[in-house]
Simulated assay, not measured.
Amino acid sequence: MRVLVLYAHPVETSFQAALHGAVVGALTRAGHQVDDCDLYAEGFDPVLSRQERIDYHDLAVNRRNVDPYVERVMRAEALVLVYPVWNFGFPAILKGFFDRVFLPGVSFRMENGKAVGNLGHIRKLAAVATYGGARWRALLVGDPPRKSVTRVLRAQVGRLGRVPYLTHYDMNRSTEATRSAFLERVTKEMERF
């Protein structure tokens, strides 16, 4: 299966980088063809320009500044997101990827004024996320990243079974043992993805 891994963390020595390495390694060992999109390493510009917003609904031109990324999304049969949760949301670079690449005609199409999912070729979806705070804090504010993946993004892709949303909460107080256990959990999940 062709798996697009979207990775969003700027520090190569972070725990998130270790998770990213585990995801790519496990998917590769499982025989998947992995397209590893490290947004920071690739220098992805997350800023939606004025002109891009003006052209947003014009299917003839809305992809022109991000077409290589659109093509990667369109080739994918599965999508795995690897990111930290900052300020109860996605890192800006990942949010910018969704804003600039998940365009009309790409992730959705308009039918009678209603947005309809357009990523039916994506048959599997997963996320690997870390949160600085405890789970109760994320729940208190509604856990927007979890809902964005398990509800919004899920609605744009093909019919899915379970959507693994793998999380390590309370990173601010994590230990070597909690990080090791989570790394092992992620590796096992990706090996059977």
Rank of each mutant, 00 (worst) to 15 (best):
A138Y: 12
N112W: 03
A22T: 06
E191Y: 09
A134I: 07
M110Y: 13
G89L: 05
R173Q: 09
R75W: 09
Y69K: 05
R64I: 05
L59W: 08
E111R: 12
A181Q: 10
Y40Q: 03
L79R: 07
V61Q: 15
N87W: 15
Q156I: 02
N118Q: 02
A177W: 06
F102P: 00
V73N: 04
G31V: 11
F15S: 00
V66E: 10
A26R: 14
D35V: 10
L139E: 14
V82T: 13
T13H: 15
Y56C: 02
Y131Q: 07
T28F: 14
L59V: 07
D58R: 14
L183C: 11
T13C: 12
V152D: 13
A181T: 10
E52L: 07
Y83F: 15
A129D: 12
R64V: 11
L153E: 02
R53C: 00
K114I: 11
A155F: 14
G117Q: 05
E71L: 14
R100E: 03
Y7W: 06
D143H: 09
P10H: 06
D55T: 06
P84H: 01
A177F: 09
I93V: 12
E111M: 10
L94M: 15
N112A: 10
F108H: 07
F98M: 04
C37Q: 12
R173E: 03
L81Y: 14
R192T: 10
E184K: 12
E52Q: 13
D143W: 09
L140D: 06
H32K: 10
T28V: 15
G43A: 06
G31H: 15
M74A: 08
W86Y: 12
V85K: 03
P91A: 05
V24Q: 06
V141N: 06
G21M: 03
V106C: 09
D36R: 04
D55V: 03
V163A: 03
D170W: 13
S14G: 01
N172S: 08
F182E: 03
F108W: 08
R137C: 09
V5W: 04
P10G: 01
G25W: 11
R192K: 12
R53K: 02
D35C: 07
H168C: 07
G89H: 11
T178Y: 09
F15T: 00
L119S: 01
H9K: 01
V186Q: 11
V106S: 04
A18Y: 02
D38S: 08
V34K: 02
G113A: 08
K124T: 01
M74S: 07
V157K: 02
P10W: 08
V61H: 14
V80Y: 12
M74V: 00
T167V: 15
L19F: 11
W136F: 11
A127K: 09
T187P: 04
S174Q: 05
T130P: 05
M110Q: 01
H9E: 04
E71I: 01
C37G: 01
T167D: 15
G21S: 13
P68G: 05
A22M: 14
T187S: 14
P164K: 03
P104Q: 04
L81V: 15
F102W: 13
P46L: 00
D170C: 08
A78Q: 11
L4H: 04
V47K: 00
A8M: 09
M171G: 05
L81A: 10
K188H: 12
L81G: 05
L59N: 07
L6S: 02
A177N: 03
G158E: 06
D67I: 08
A78G: 15
A126F: 13
K147E: 12
K188G: 06
P46K: 02
